[in-house]
Design a binder for these strands. Structure first.
Length: 577
DNA sequence: GCCGATCCCT
């Protein structure tokens, strides 16, 4: 038996696996359960074409045992068609042998990957019935599956009920929270673990990846620094994947120099993800020159640009207004064997649209080989609004409504366009249509001050320092007026008088956050960082530029798509966004 | 023996 295992582990190619298979058949060992099951398991998981081979061999087994089934189920669980694992489990349940904890573990994995929630619930019930549930590893796999279905409350409940938890259990929940839109909870859990309150488990490489991802999403600068400090102290920065996530985190929290510092000092080598992350980092920072410089270096390092590399370079062109360079990349990528997907189209449509080439953007959407995504029409709508092209905006809106995927934001865009033209009848019509829909994403901004995160909604009056904040806003309004500012009331949706419109604008969440930041900085310098969940509004952009000059403040706003660095009355986006 | 992992359009 030992020699078969040793042969298996020394297979350099799939043809070696076939030779071992032939040997087992010739010697009759194939019908001997332990040999065969080991062989099948190796065959189905170690090589890409091995699963088909194992599946083809399966019918020749006289009486398949649990591990034979497990081998196939495991193989499918990690294949491109994980749902097949469930189908095999159904067949297995009709066979004489019984599933074991391993079978269920592979099934949970398969369910997690194919997002088959119902099937997972059924297997969960079986697990309880069979009495496998005491198994920590199995519980962790299930926890991970729940997290991937976004059943985070169930995942937390399972976690709390576990009698024993190891590092992967913690990691599964932290990563689940981070990826499931609860990054703050992920950080809380990470910090608990770091402070030694995690069943004697300390964070490892995988744990910090969850924490890094949480910081990236939040754009949380202080937390980002703290997580990095932990990584250095515990020598986790020799791991390539950790480094890639660190670069992403620094780039997404507005610390592009730190991101580039890590990129340049990596001792563990760089892979294509490293380059993609750094290029995208420069892109969202509005530094198209550095992004394209790195893009050109990729091939020289023996790496082949992939779809994400091109996407990052296209994003860089988009955010820096480099239309010709972007079009050139878009043309070249397919010649270089990289297929264009929806995201590439989305970026090029935005690039052309923002540059005012609405017809060209429209033609690109129509010329696509696949059915255009709602995002493409939303992008075209946004560009039409930017360039006040009512006809194109109406066309894009029509397509969105037809596709059944129009959102609140789409209606707001169209309505704002009508409003800017004074077409109040159309505004009312669009608003009525919008109000029939329930889903609204409220705009909010947040700013961190002395370790506390302060969050503001539009027109928010719930902050303890509400009075001071609104007084500050009034002061800002007066000072920038003296400086020659006029409110760009076209950004207001409603049919209000000019003065009321200005008020509606002046209480946008990003302005509240900036006013609060000015009050709280105690005259001290330093950069003020504001995060916003949606895109920054045009009036806020203009106002914050002036604030940066009149109050000598450097203000960085991270919005949904990029960073804006306001300084001395200007912005790093050079008004192109 | 089975658990946890990086970059991606508006």
């Amino acid at each position: 038996m030992a020699y078969v295992e040793s042969l298996l582990h020394n297979c350099a190619s799939f043809s070696h696996v076939r030779q071992i298979h032939a040997h087992l058949l010739a010697t009759g060992l194939f019908q001997f359960y332990p040999y065969r099951a080991k062989f099948l398991d190796y065959c189905a998981t170690a090589f890409s074409s091995g699963l088909r081979h194992a599946v083809a061999a399966f019918p020749f087994i006289r009486l398949p045992g649990t591990n034979d089934w497990n081998a196939i189920i495991r193989g499918y669980a990690q294949s491109d068609s994980p749902n097949e694992a469930v189908a095999w489990y159904v067949s297995m349940s009709r066979a004489p042998c019984k599933p074991d904890a391993l079978t269920c573990s592979f099934l949970f994995k398969a369910c997690a990957r194919s997002l088959s929630r119902i099937e997972a619930l059924q297997v969960h019930a079986h697990v309880r019935r069979y009495g496998f549930f005491a198994d920590v590893l199995l519980q962790t796999t299930l926890l991970d599956a729940y997290a991937k279905f976004a059943d985070l409350d169930d995942a937390c409940k399972l976690f709390d009920e576990m009698s024993r938890r190891d590092i992967p259990s913690w990691n599964a929940l932290i990563a689940g929270l981070a990826q499931g839109d609860r990054p703050s909870d992920a950080l809380l859990l990470f910090n608990r673990m770091r402070e030694g309150n995690a069943d004697d488990n300390s964070p490892n490489e995988v744990t910090v990846l969850g924490a890094l991802s949480a910081c990236s999403q939040l754009g949380a600068i202080k937390e980002a620094d703290r997580v990095f400090e932990y990584i250095l102290q515990n020598n986790l920065h020799h791991n390539l994947i950790v480094c890639n996530a660190v670069i992403d985190m620094f780039a997404k929290s507005g610390q592009i120099e730190k991101a580039y510092g890590v990129f340049n000092s990596m001792k563990c080598g760089r892979n294509i993800v490293t380059w993609n992350t750094m290029i995208m980092g420069f892109a969202i920072d509005g530094d198209g020159v550095n992004a394209l410089r790195l893009f050109r270096l990729v091939e020289g390092r023996g790496l082949k640009p992939d779809g994400v590399t091109y996407l990052a370079a296209l994003c860089a062109c988009n955010h820096s207004g480099m239309v010709d360079e972007g079009l050139d990349l878009f043309e070249k990528m397919e010649k270089n064997g990289v297929f264009r997907n929806m995201k590439h189209y989305g970026t090029i449509v935005d690039l052309l649209g923002r540059a005012g080439k609405l017809e060209a953007a429209y033609r690109i959407i129509l010329s696509m080989p696949t059915f255009p995504d709602a995002v493409l029409w939303q992008t075209l709508l946004g560009a039409s609004k930017l360039h006040s092209n009512v006809k194109m905006a109406e066309e894009a809106s029509r397509k969105l409504v037809e596709s059944g995927s129009s959102t609140c934001g789409d209606y707001v865009l169209l309505s704002n366009l009508y409003a800017s033209q004074g077409r109040w009848g159309d505004v009312g019509r669009v608003r009525n249509a919008m109000n029939k829909r329930i889903k609204k994403v409220p705009g909010f901004s947040y700013i961190e001050m002395n370790g506390t995160v302060h969050r503001f909604f539009n027109g928010d009056q719930s902050h303890p320092m509400c009075r001071e904040i609104y007084e500050k806003l009034e002061e800002i309004r007066v000072r920038i007026r003296e400086f020659g500012y006029e409110a760009e009331t076209k950004y207001v949706l409603h049919d209000l008088g000019e003065e009321e419109k200005e008020n509606a604008l002046s209480h946008h969440s990003e302005k509240l956050a900036v006013a609060f930041g000015l009050i709280s900085r105690n005259g001290g310098g330093g950069v003020m960082n504001v995060n916003k969940n949606l895109r920054i509004c045009g009036d806020c952009h203009a106002v914050i530029m002036l604030v940066s000059k009149l109050y000598e403040a450097e203000i960085v706003v991270r919005d949904r798509t990029r960073f804006h660095r306001f300084k001395d009355g200007g912005c790093s986006c050079r008004d192109y966004w």
